[in-house]
Simulated scan of single mutants.
Amino acid sequence: MMPNNIAAIATLTSTLFVIQARPIQAVPVTYDFTVEVTQGSLAGKRFTGSFRYDNKKVREVGTEEIGVADGLTVNMTFFGQDYTEKADTDYPKYPQLILEDGLIQRLDFWIEPGERVVWWGQPGWKVELFPRDNVPALPDCR
């Protein structure tokens, strides 16, 4: 049996380790993306965009949805026109970034009238992600 003070130190040390394993501050994460359409009526078209979210919202466990209320921002150029998250037909409920165990699965962003379609990663829609340098600036401690 351990003396009480050793058990207390072990508990405190374990607690501090868990606390330190989490990021100290939230970091905005930005990805650029390209979409190349290879099938259907838009075959041969290419679209570009970016999205940004705050990593403090990500638990990295199971399926997660990050939306506008969580700080998600989106920019996409579609047929030469720039669109932001506010252009989504179901704003502010959408757009949403869907993650599985912390990994990006798709961006649900829809700007066309009519029925919402999940296009990200579907056959004929080649999506490539490019992470930006997401290192936060160090505070000025003068």
Rank of each mutant, 00 (worst) to 15 (best):
M1F: 11
M1H: 11
M2L: 15
M2S: 14
N4T: 08
N4A: 14
A8T: 05
I9L: 15
I9M: 14
L12G: 06
L12F: 03
T13D: 13
T15S: 11
F17Y: 08
F17V: 13
V18H: 12
I19Q: 12
I19D: 06
I19G: 10
I19M: 13
I24N: 03
Q25K: 14
V27H: 13
T34M: 07
V35W: 10
V35C: 07
E36H: 15
T38Y: 10
T38D: 05
T38V: 08
G40D: 08
S41N: 13
L42W: 13
A43Q: 14
A43T: 07
F47Y: 13
T48N: 10
F51Y: 05
K56W: 06
E60L: 08
G62Q: 02
G62R: 03
G62T: 00
E64V: 00
E64R: 05
E64S: 03
E65L: 14
E65I: 05
I66D: 01
I66G: 03
G67N: 10
G67D: 01
V68L: 00
G71P: 11
L72I: 09
V74S: 04
T77A: 10
T77I: 10
F78T: 02
F78R: 01
G80H: 07
D82V: 13
T84S: 15
T84H: 06
E85H: 14
D88F: 07
Y91L: 01
K93R: 10
Y94H: 14
P95L: 01
Q96K: 10
L99F: 04
D101S: 06
L103Y: 08
Q105F: 02
Q105A: 10
R106F: 00
R106W: 00
L107T: 00
F109Y: 11
I111C: 09
I111N: 11
E112N: 05
P113H: 06
E115Q: 15
R116Y: 13
R116S: 06
Q122T: 09
Q122A: 15
P123Q: 08
W125S: 09
K126L: 14
L129F: 12
F130I: 07
P131T: 07
N134D: 07
N134M: 03
P136D: 00
A137C: 03
A137R: 05
L138D: 08
